[in-house]
Structures are given as C-alpha cells and as structure tokens.
Amino acid sequence: AALEEIYPQTRQQRCWMHKTGNVLNCVPKSIQPRVKSALHEIWQAETKGDAQQAFEQFEKLYGAKYPKAVEKLQKDREELMAFYDFPAEHWQSLRTTNP
C-alpha cells in the first residue's frame, strides 16, 4: 500500500513461488503435481503470448472443478505477468522473491 501511495506509477510483480503455494492450497494433494506443472508452464513460457495461452489453458482445465484456485491466479494476473514486459535476462530476478 505504501509503494502505491508514494510511487503510484510503479508497476508491481507478484512472486510466482508464493502464488504457486497459494493456488496449490486450493486443490487436493492428489492433483497438486499436475497443477504445479501447469503453473510452471505459465511463468516459464518463452514469450508473453505463450504464457497467456498457458494461463488460459489453466483456466479451462481447472476452472470448473477448482474455481477458488483459478480465482487466486486470475486475481493477480497482470502483476504475475508483468516481468514479461522487461528484458528476458531480468526475468529470473523479477518473477520471484526466491530466485
């Protein structure tokens, strides 16, 4: 909140490691490995376009049965994908607080 107040034009990047944990908490343990793999397809995509497709695929695969998991992901979509707007050599340090 302070960042937004002091620097309102600053873009934010949400941490994929923490978001992954939050999403996995919304699905049964039996499918967590598949869900985790699908999330990795998003944030490890080669391009933003590929990531958008993987995001949409995730929504289609899990939206009906696990709406809370998908909602957690959708809620921060813009902030999760922000790193794609920067040079690729910076992606590793931008997309997570646990590089």
Rank of each mutant, 00 (worst) to 15 (best):
R14E: 07
E46R: 02
G49M: 13
L3V: 15
K48H: 09
T10Q: 04
A38F: 00
T96M: 06
H18T: 12
C15S: 13
E71T: 12
S37C: 06
R14K: 14
V23Y: 02
R95N: 13
G49V: 14
L3W: 14
Q57G: 03
L61Y: 10
H90E: 11
T10P: 00
R34D: 12
V27C: 08
K65L: 02
F58K: 06
E78R: 13
M17A: 15
F55H: 01
K29D: 04
N25F: 12
R95M: 13
W91T: 07
K72Y: 14
E56F: 08
D50V: 01
W43P: 03
P33L: 02
Y62R: 05
I6F: 02
L94S: 10
A38P: 01
V27D: 13
E46S: 03
Q57P: 00
H90F: 06
K29G: 02
Q53Y: 11
A88P: 09
A45S: 15
P28E: 11
E78K: 14
P8Y: 11
N25A: 15
A38K: 06
A51G: 08
P67R: 06
N98Y: 14
W43H: 15
K48A: 08
M17V: 14
N22W: 06
P28V: 05
D50K: 00
L80R: 10
D50M: 01
D50A: 00
P28T: 10
Q13R: 08
M81Q: 04
A69L: 10
P67Q: 07
S30V: 00
P33A: 03
W91M: 05
N25C: 09
K29E: 07
A88L: 07
K65C: 00
P8D: 08
P28I: 04
A38I: 02
E59Y: 03
E71H: 10
S30M: 01
M81W: 07
G21I: 05
R14I: 08
M81T: 07
T20R: 12
E78D: 05
W16K: 01
L39Q: 03
K19I: 01
E59C: 03
V35C: 01
K19V: 04
L39I: 05
R77W: 14
G21P: 04
K36E: 05
E59D: 05
D76H: 14
Q12F: 13
K60N: 08
V27A: 08
N98A: 08
A51R: 03
C26A: 12
Q44Y: 15
N98L: 06
I42L: 11
P67I: 07
P28H: 11
K75I: 06
L94A: 11
P33N: 05
Q9N: 14
R34F: 05
K65R: 07
